[in-house]
């Protein structure tokens, strides 16, 4: 089984722009899945709507291209009704944290065993470059011509506060780290969130002084540091990378199965209240 066995080759070259980071996220993801030795027929990829969401069409898993912001709700239904499946849920930053925010925090709170990948390019690429909840304050977008007035979420803190038991951040420059983090995230039993900074030269880069893929990755290289590095404390524009949370707490489907064991089977006791 080579890397190529995990993609639907007939659809390549894919639809993302030249230099789009989402292709690198896909690249890292299939290598993580390959090295975990997972059975393709036991993996369901549920994605939302947007550039990031098209990733589910390119993987040779069971693929579920859902509604904008709702991938985690669909994925909860799939996983909870068939816990043997491995659920991978790639989403855009707007997909996961704007319209999808409510499902994001509740899936984390439930600690259901799915792997949420926030492909964060700090824009809405598919619709032409509007700013998103993850755009940096002052970033320009087609709906923030003078620069956004809003602070982005800290996706790591948000997921942690909501109860995610595996939380990490990486970037498409640090592909090797990305692969190893995705491996651990998928293998983790419980809600895993990986924020994957991913470059969008076409819609975000051009409007924010980073007009091509190399300059965007240079930015990731120089503006992220391993967790605990001094620089992150000194400069708020520097983000920490790595695994922030990796703990074990009861996983939702397992807790449910345990509860069912304790319940007496239905004795047909007249049933309804």
């Amino acid at each position: 089984m080579g890397t190529r066995d995990f993609i639907r080759e007939r659809f390549f070259p894919h639809m993302w722009c030249p230099g789009c980071g989402h292709g690198t996220v896909l690249n890292c993801l299939i290598r993580a899945v390959e090295s975990l030795g997972l059975d393709k027929s036991q993996i369901v990829m549920a994605s939302g709507i947007g550039c990031s969401a098209r990733i589910s069409g390119y993987v040779d898993f069971h693929s579920l291209h859902t509604l904008h912001g709702r991938a985690l709700a669909f994925a909860t239904g799939v996983k909870f009704s068939q816990p043997a499946l491995t659920l991978i849920v790639p989403m855009g930053d707007g997909d996961a944290l704007a319209i999808g925010g409510n499902h994001f925090i509740h899936a984390a709170r439930r600690n259901i065993d799915v792997t949420a990948i926030v492909m964060n390019n700090r824009t809405y690429g598919m619709t032409g470059g509007q700013y998103s909840p993850m755009s940096l304050m002052g970033d320009c977008g087609t709906t923030a011509p003078m620069g956004t007035l809003e602070r982005p979420f800290d996706a790591v803190k948000l997921a942690t506060a909501a109860g995610a038991t595996f939380v990490a951040r990486t970037t498409t420059y640090h592909a090797r780290e990305g692969i190893s983090i995705l491996k651990r995230a998928i293998a983790h039993k419980g809600f895993s969130m990986v924020e994957f900074l991913s470059q969008c030269p076409t819609q975000y880069g051009r409007r924010n002084g980073l007009a091509d893929a190399p300059s965007m990755l240079e930015y990731f290289k120089t503006h992220t540091v391993p967790i605990g590095s001094e620089k992150a404390q000194e400069d708020p524009n520097i983000l920490e990378r790595g695994i922030f949370v990796d703990e074990d707490r009861p996983e939702y489907c397992e807790s449910y199965a345990a509860m069912v064991q304790k319940m007496a089977p239905s004795s047909g006791d007249g049933g309804a209240l």
Partner: peptide, 11 residues
């Protein structure tokens, strides 16, 4: 393998 891993096109 940096080129292989970072390539957005899996090319």
């Amino acid at each position: 393998r940096l080129c292989e891993l970072q390539c957005p096109e899996l090319a």
